[in-house]
Design a protein around this nucleic acid. Structure first.
Lengths: 245, 245
DNA sequence: TGATCAAAAATTGTATACGATCTAATTTGT
DNA sequence: ACAAATTAGATCGTATACAATTTTTGATCA
């Protein structure tokens, strides 16, 4: 039946079976497909993921869908509430801060390791990634551009050939996508490309320390593109909301 | 029926519901119980975890057990092979290296943050942790002592109040337990206590940089306690194994 | 005796059924 | 008309049944 659901359009496939530590199978297919949908902002934070509904879409029974949703829950993209079901996660401000602080700790190190491990073929792959990113941006597909931008970071981690750290980065970048969906305030996403270009230059020169430094600045810059001020909580009651007005 | 399976003996409960991102329920109970069993080396790496067998033990159906095993697979403690079932993970040498390198990157940072956030009550809790660790060691329960040693590191992460990094450390420490089960070569585990004592001193003085440095040395020291030389692979066939002898 | 193949047993993958819980719509009472 | 209570519907949690796959067993033959 429905096998190989995820459209394998070359890039964008930020997640693999290792991301979820699941054996190949329909559960994994659904996982990856939902994962991509969330990363490309086709599913908004907070959206309900009903087991029946998802199962209907993929032509699978609840058993399989449940497993997929639980796997996504473990990776932080989905939140499960007992007897209430699964929702696309809505990371709070606090979590957003921590995710980017963690990225600022881990990714620069990875960038340095990647610079040392970089081969000519790797460089070429990274360049192709960037081109795809530009193309998506030019065609106005913001969701895809963002997903590709994340895939660029993941590609670096893969080149560094550190599976443990790579896994962490994957998770952090997935969560970053949700955070950006919720808190991004900057109109231009072009800054992205500049940093990625600079990284590529450092990589081509096998300059580890430079790559590390650029990556750190890049993450800090991304972080600063978020509006993480405490939002006005929705008033607890309608009366409270209207009284002072 | 069987609810609250995990014996809540104060410490040792290194995992919470956040570790698995699961809502409270029987699945989580089984998760936590298996988690503890693995961390205390009551379940050896490579051991088969049959769904029926586990279900029998906890008086639960396969549905629930499967979910628990998959959650443990996501956290890396269990490996699932399609159509073959779940096994306690056997991390390889490469993974062992990477896990301790990741700890050396993350935990010192956490130690520094913890030093700044340390309150008197936190210090007292850490001291109690250490006492429990000593007691377990004195009573000869090596498995429990190791689990408590891990819990000490996790307690630090909790004090630092960084949930994202804390979650990562939890995962790394769980995997470290498997790695130690497979590759530990040192007889004395006392070095542990010295490092933990030194950390406590730095914490009590709110000396962040010192805590960071001590923690880094401590992790490197743990790493050096492993025998990660390439082992002779088991011969591909029995004939090959016996011929040269 | 040892290797090869076939059948049986055991184990996992998936679908479905039923009870429990939550959500909402409707009713009821003031 | 509004709030509280009740009922109906939808959704989740769990057990169980059957199909698919692997592993073990046992038979056959060189």
């Amino acid at each position: 039946m429905a096998r190989s659901i995820t459209a394998p359009d070359g890039f964008g496939a930020a997640a693999t079976h290792e991301t979820f530590q699941l054996p190949p199978g329909r559960t994994l297919d659904i996982c990856l497909n939902l994962h991509n949908a969330i990363l490309e902002h086709r599913l908004a934070p907070g959206m309900k993921l009903s087991e029946d509904e998802v199962g209907e879409i993929y032509g699978a029974s609840r058993t399989v869908v449940r497993a997929a949703l639980q796997a996504l829950a473990h990776s932080g993209l989905v939140t499960i509430a007992r007897n209430r079901g699964a929702f696309v996660s809505r990371p709070g401000i606090r979590e957003a801060q921590e995710v980017f602080e963690a990225r600022a700790l881990i990714e620069p190190r990875i960038a340095r390791l990647a610079a040392y491990a970089m081969k000519a073929s790797d460089l070429k792959r990274l360049k192709k990634h960037m081109d795809a990113e530009h193309a998506a941006l030019a065609s106005g597909d913001k969701g895809k551009a963002l997903a590709l931008s994340g895939a660029f970071h993941i590609a670096i981690a893969d080149i560094a050939d550190q599976q443990v750290l790579s896994q962490m980065v994957r998770s952090l970048i997935s969560r970053s996508s949700l955070i950006i969906a919720l808190y991004w305030r900057r109109a231009d996403t072009t800054c992205e490309s500049h940093a990625h270009h600079a990284l590529l230059k450092a990589f081509s020169e096998k300059d580890g320390p430079a790559a590390e430094e650029i990556q750190k600045s890049h993450i800090v810059d991304l972080h600063s593109g978020l509006d993480l001020r405490e939002k006005q909580e929705p008033k607890s009651s309608l009366a409270d909301a209207l009284k002072p007005d």
